[in-house]
């Protein structure tokens, strides 16, 4: 048996054991589905939800909120990170503002998200943006800060005359691995903000919205279903991004992981 198969078999075995223990505790120790739904309760709830047909819509709406927040964080975080990482004046001007805003927990922005955007998709996107922006900004900033001096000087003697050329042809490619891992962290933080972002009812769909909705209805098996879908979707997003980055952008970094 090779190592891969061994790893896979042991992984499945471990999950199976946890499911069995969970089932026993839920059924014979706790005994109330409201406190701790059993595996079979959750499986039944999942089957029902599949039949009722909003799971796909919920996932798509959540991905839309997530996408809005993340794209906005990328579009603002990368350029501001470049300004701060490359130009000293930019750093001096922007650093105090960033340092004051950065420690504010993303969820603390929820009241203003509602006031500024109303109960809209953008409001949910804004909360996710508040979580995803700073990891991208700081990763871009340190990526640009850490560009080896010899690359910059090589660029200069080879004919990069302007800052723009140096940024485009030398600093940005050198910083891409750092920016990519910043985006990965940002996606994790953004996904964690999703449940709260959908909590205040910007739409009648969304994994986070359904989680709260079912809690109010005391449908705890459904809550567990949404918890598991949230976890699984987050995992899949992370895997897809990591594989994409490894294959497409970082061919030149041989085996290093974003």
């Amino acid at each position: 048996m090779n190592q891969q198969t061994q790893k896979r078999l042991l992984g499945i075995a471990s999950l199976a054991v946890v499911a069995i223990i969970w089932q026993i505790i839920a059924e014979y120790v706790v005994g109330r589905s409201f406190i701790l739904p059993s595996v079979t309760d959750v499986a039944g709830a999942f089957a029902n939800l599949l039949g009722s047909g909003t799971l796909l819509a919920d996932t798509l709406v959540s991905l839309e909120h997530f996408g809005i927040g993340l794209i906005a964080a990328f579009l603002l975080g990368v350029p501001i990170g470049i300004l701060m990482g490359w130009f000293r004046i930019g750093d001096y001007l922007l650093d105090p503002i960033i340092e004051i805003l950065r420690p504010i927990p993303p969820l603390a922005w929820i009241p203003f998200a509602i006031i500024w955007f109303g109960l809209t998709t953008q409001a949910a996107g804004f909360v996710i943006f508040a979580g995803a922006f700073f990891p991208i900004l700081t990763a871009t900033y340190s990526g640009f800060r850490d560009v080896p001096k010899v690359f910059v000087e090589a660029g200069k003697v080879l004919g990069c005359d302007t800052s723009l050329e140096l940024i485009r042809y030398v600093a940005l490619p050198a910083a891409i691995p750092g920016i990519a891992s910043g985006i990965r962290i940002a996606m994790g933080v953004g996904w964690m903000c999703l449940v709260a972002a959908e909590m205040f009812g910007v739409s009648n769909y969304g994994l986070g919205y359904q989680l709260w909705h079912n809690y109010y209805l005391h449908q705890m098996p459904n809550v567990v279903v949404y918890m598991l879908i949230l976890g699984l979707t987050g995992l899949i997003i992370d895997r897809i991004f990591r594989n994409y980055v490894e294959r497409q952008l970082l061919r030149w970094r041989a085996g290093e992981v974003a």
């Binding site: 010899v150 003697v157 042809y169 490619p173």
Partner: peptide, 29 residues
């Protein structure tokens, strides 16, 4: 100025470019 070529002590090749595109960098600029 590209009219004065420089070879550094540290490895200064751009790791994200293939050999051919490293060598072509100055011409690209």
């Amino acid at each position: 100025d590209p009219k004065r070529g420089m070879v550094f002590q540290e490895y200064s090749l751009f790791p994200w470019r293939r050999v051919v595109d490293n060598v072509a960098f100055g011409l690209e600029m």
